[in-house]
Amino acid sequence: MSGPTGHNPLITDSGIGLDEVEEARAIPSRKRFKTVPRKVWIGAAIITAFALVAIFAPLLAPFDPLAQDPVNNLTPPDSTHLLGTDELGRDVLSRLIYATRTDLPIGLLAALFPFLVGTVLGTLAGFFGGFIDALTMRISDIVQAFPSYILVIALVFVLGPGAKSILIAFTALGWVVYARIIRTEVLRVRSADYVKAAKVSGLPTRGILVRDVFRNSVGPSLVYFPSDIVFATLALAAFSFLGLGIPPPTPEWGAMIADGQAHIREQWWLSTLPGVMIVLLGLGYSLIGDGLEESLDK
C-alpha cells in the first residue's frame, strides 16, 4: 500500500486521496467472538446420555417397570434387582430408566411451549407497542399476580390429571417471563439505527421484525431457556409428588420420590435415587445455559 512499490496513497493524481482499497481486517483479539465454552459440551453430553437412556429404555431396563411382585417388595439392591424393588415389588432400576421417557420430554415441552408463546407475544408487544403491548402486559400482570401453584392446581383439577393438563397449565403461567425478557430487548433494539436504516431502505416490516429486531433480541431468552427446563422438570416432579402430576402407575421421578417417602428410614434409596436423577438432569441443562450466557456475552 505504500513505500517500496512507489504508490503513494497520501498524494494522488486527483488530489482527493481516496484510491486505496481497504481490506477487511479482524479487529484485535479482545473483540473476537468467543468460541463455545467447554461446559456447554459437558452439559450437552449429560442430556444426550439421558436421551439415549429414554430411547433405548426397553433394551436397557432389565424388568418391566409396571410388573408387580408384591411378595418381593422392598428388597434391597442385589444381583437380580440392582437397585432393589419398591413397595409393590417393581424393579427400581427399570422404573428409573423408564421414567426418563416421562420426565425428559414433558420437562422440555413444559418450557418450550411457554418459550414459543411468550417470545411471540413479547416480540409483537415490544415492536408494535400501543394496544397490543398494553393488552399483553396487563394480562401478564394478572397471571403473575396469581399464586402460581394454586393456578396450576385449579387447572389440573378442571382438566383432569395427566401430561396434557400439566403442559397447558405450565404454558399458561410460564409464557409471561419469556414475554418480558424479549420485550425488554425488543424495546432496546427497535430504536437502533440499523432498524431505522432498514425502514429507510424500504424493507417490509415483517422482514425487519424477524431479521433485524428478533434476531438481535432473542439472545437472553435462549440463555434463560435451559434453566427454565430445569425449573419445569422440578415443578413436574413437585406436582407428581403432590399427586397432581402424572398419574400412577407411569414411572416418574417425582412420583417415585413421593412413593418412597413412607420407607425413607429403611429403604432410603427409593426416594433418593430419583432425586439424584433430577439433580443430574438439572446439572446438564444448567451447564448448557451458563455456557450459552458466557458465549453470548461478548
Binding site: 481516496l18 481497504e22 481490506e23 477487511a24 481486517r25 479482524a26 479487529i27 473483540k31 467472538f33
Partner: peptide, 22 residues
C-alpha cells in the same frame, strides 16, 4: 463495495470485525 473503496473480502465479515471508517 468497490464504489466505496472496500475490497470484496469485506463481504464475508460481520460489522464487529470492521473499523469505524469501514
Amino acid at each position: 463495495l468497490s464504489m466505496v473503496g472496500l475490497s470484496e473480502s469485506v463481504l464475508e465479515v460481520k460489522p464487529r470485525s470492521l473499523s469505524g471508517g469501514q
